[in-house]
């Protein structure tokens, strides 16, 4: 038996909203440690990885590790029926083929809604991602990151992120012209939610398809800060820290020929 209760259905809704554009079917792996999910897009350019630890839930029970294969679009149909502050309980039998989602309206205890979603058998490839030291890490407000990517995407299909010791620069070039946004490192490191924290051992510049970067911005409502971890010639690791877990992307860079 698996049963997990989230005090705010919106947490799960935001997670699922953030993966809807690139990822069709996902396995949510439930264990005694919490719920985790890893999925690659069809083009094998982006990988999303999520972990919600047991502490994220107001109650949590998982007798046996199970994998809940879900179609993201179907899951969203159900999650969108909920109010943000509804209490969400997810339940599945060990050998069942359904995930039950129950929503309780905190302002109207007399209303309870219940949905059953059919589980899918998803045969998924997994990436073995080695522990990686990143030589450049930029941490900034997620709203700022979202704005930069949104603004620059209008200029070109490709965005270069250039991290140096004193700042980070995002550049786009396209048919209509070019644009860039530079952010200088703040001195109030780590203290302020608005600060730009830059830790660069070695300057790095990597280019990405802006469509995929846009996808990594969709998680901005999940956390106030995002960290961009880069190293020469390997995928960027973009991570949002959740209260009890993380929501992250690996994104393969463009390789110059």
């Amino acid at each position: 038996m698996f049963e997990a209760k989230l005090n705010e259905a919106s947490v799960f809704k935001k997670i699922v909203e953030s993966v809807k554009d690139g990822f069709k079917n996902c396995n949510f792996d439930c264990s005694e440690e919490g719920i985790s999910m890893e999925s690659m897009d069809d083009a094998h350019i982006a990988l999303v990885s999520m972990k919600l630890g047991v502490e994220a839930f107001s109650s949590y029970r998982c007798d046996r590790s199970i994998s809940l294969g879900l179609n993201i679009e179907s899951l969203l149909k159900v999650l969108r029926t909920a109010n943000n502050n509804d209490v969400l309980t997810m339940r599945a039998e060990d050998d069942g083929d359904l995930l039950t989602l129950v929503f309780e309206d905190s302002s109207n205890p007399d209303r309870i809604s219940e949905y059953n979603l059919k589980l899918l058998n998803i045969d998924q490839e997994h990436m073995s991602i080695p522990e990686q030291e990143y030589t450049a890490t930029v941490t900034l407000p997620s709203s700022e990151y979202q704005r930069i990517i949104r603004d620059l995407t209008q200029l070109g299909d490709s965005i270069t992120i250039d991290a140096a010791k004193d700042g980070v620069r995002f550049t786009a070039e396209g048919d209509i012209g070019s644009g860039s946004v530079s952010l200088k490192a703040n001195t109030n490191v780590g203290e302020d939610e608005k600060s730009i924290d830059i830790a660069v051992e070695e300057p790095v510049a990597l280019g990405f398809n802006s469509k995929y970067l846009t996808q990594t911005c969709k998680a901005a409502p999940l956390a106030p800060r995002v960290s961009l971890n880069m190293c020469k010639r390997i995928p960027i690791f973009i991570s949002y820290k959740l209260q009890a877990g993380h929501f992250s992307f690996f994104l393969a860079p463009q390789i110059s020929e």
Partner: peptide, 14 residues
């Protein structure tokens, strides 16, 4: 020109 890399160019698939 730049070519789009794929994740398996960098990581192994299990």
């Amino acid at each position: 020109g730049a070519m789009q890399g794929r994740l398996e160019d960098f990581f192994k698939i299990k």
